[in-house]
């Protein structure tokens, strides 16, 4: 095979895979933009909406079930990320201090939790016994510190130039000032990366709310979407704005369109932070951690 043929083949395969990875999202976005009339006419085969309408999104935003779920998702993402980021940073800094007595034991304790977990039932029982069921804390506390991120950030702290530490000491800075005023600000890029990944994780998680939250008013968006697809229970669908039933199919959206709009909502924050995420992972910071 000549280099030219190879280049053409490679480019076609890469482009084909790229297009394939866009098709489902493309289809769902377009499907979320049509009224029931167009949906029925085309039998759901929508590759380009003729009369695009945001009706499905208006319906969703008008229903309390959706706005509540959106609110819960936002709260858990903001609170959870703030807490996880601060706790992870503190622990990572502590285990990066070579002269800290007990450092080895701490590091070992963190490593063990990566290899061995508590399992589903015991974790559930602990959350239950701490009276956290049906509270937002059940979605935030169990994942408060991520042991992997601790190791990533520890590595980052250790790679900071030692002269910084020494010159701070010469200037008479104590351990406290060294941490707050010098080391943590320098770790800001790594912290930003961990914060972004944590936020994405929070926004995307649904299983914890499935097991810890019975109260539907406290369900995050991902669980609402899941219930919409798997339970197909009428009550969920009615809550999502179908109750206001219009006679004319031009002024209605099909339930399929509503579902697609929900899925799109589930991806919007991800697509918004994606450019920032990409900046961090292409730098290869997460790879450094994998390779140790």
């Amino acid at each position: 095979m000549s280099e030219r043929v190879y280049q053409w083949t490679a480019a076609s395969i890469v482009l084909l895979i790229t297009i394939l990875s866009l098709v489902p999202l493309w289809y769902v976005i377009n499907g979320s933009l049509v009224n029931e009339q167009e949906w029925m006419e085309k039998g759901g085969f929508i590759l380009w909406p003729e009369k695009p309408t945001l009706m499905a999104y208006e319906r969703l935003l008008a229903g309390t079930a959706f706005t509540q779920a959106l609110f819960v998702s936002m709260i858990r993402t903001v609170l959870g990320t703030a807490l996880t980021l601060s706790m992870t940073t503190i622990l990572a800094y502590a285990v990066s201090r070579k002269s800290l007595p007990g450092r080895k034991a701490l590091l070992f304790a963190v490593l063990v939790t990566i290899l061995f977990g508590g399992g589903l039932i015991p974790s559930y029982l602990v959350v239950r016994d701490l009276q956290m069921l049906n509270t937002i804390w059940a979605l935030i506390i169990p994942s408060m510190v991520d042991s992997w991120s601790v190791l990533v950030l520890k590595q980052f702290f250790e790679n900071l130039p030692e002269e910084m530490e020494e010159s701070a000491k010469i200037d008479g800075a104590g351990e406290g000032r060294l941490m707050w005023a010098i080391m943590i600000p320098m770790a800001a890029p790594a912290m930003a990366a961990i914060g972004l990944f944590t936020a994405v994780g929070h926004w995307n998680s649904w299983f914890d709310s499935l097991i810890y939250i019975d109260n539907a008013q406290l369900h995050p968006l991902q669980l609402l979407i899941r219930n919409m697809f798997t339970n197909a229970s009428l009550s969920v669908q009615q809550n999502l704005g179908q109750a206001s039933y219009a006679m004319n199919a031009h002024n209605r959206v099909s339930i399929e369109t509503l579902k697609m709009a929900l899925v799109v909502f589930g991806t919007i924050p991800i697509l918004c932070v994606y450019p920032f995420l990409q900046k961090h992972f292409t730098k290869g910071m997460y790879l450094g951690a994998v390779k140790g």
Partner: peptide, 28 residues
């Protein structure tokens, strides 16, 4: 150019939740 554009797009699905994924699969 192709490499840049493709890489940008190819990483996106990784960040979708499995719930969203199920939504996409259901639609298809």
């Amino acid at each position: 150019f192709i490499r840049r554009v493709s890489q940008t797009i190819l990483y996106i699905p990784h960040f979708f939740s499995w719930v969203v994924m199920y939504g996409l699969i259901f639609a298809l």
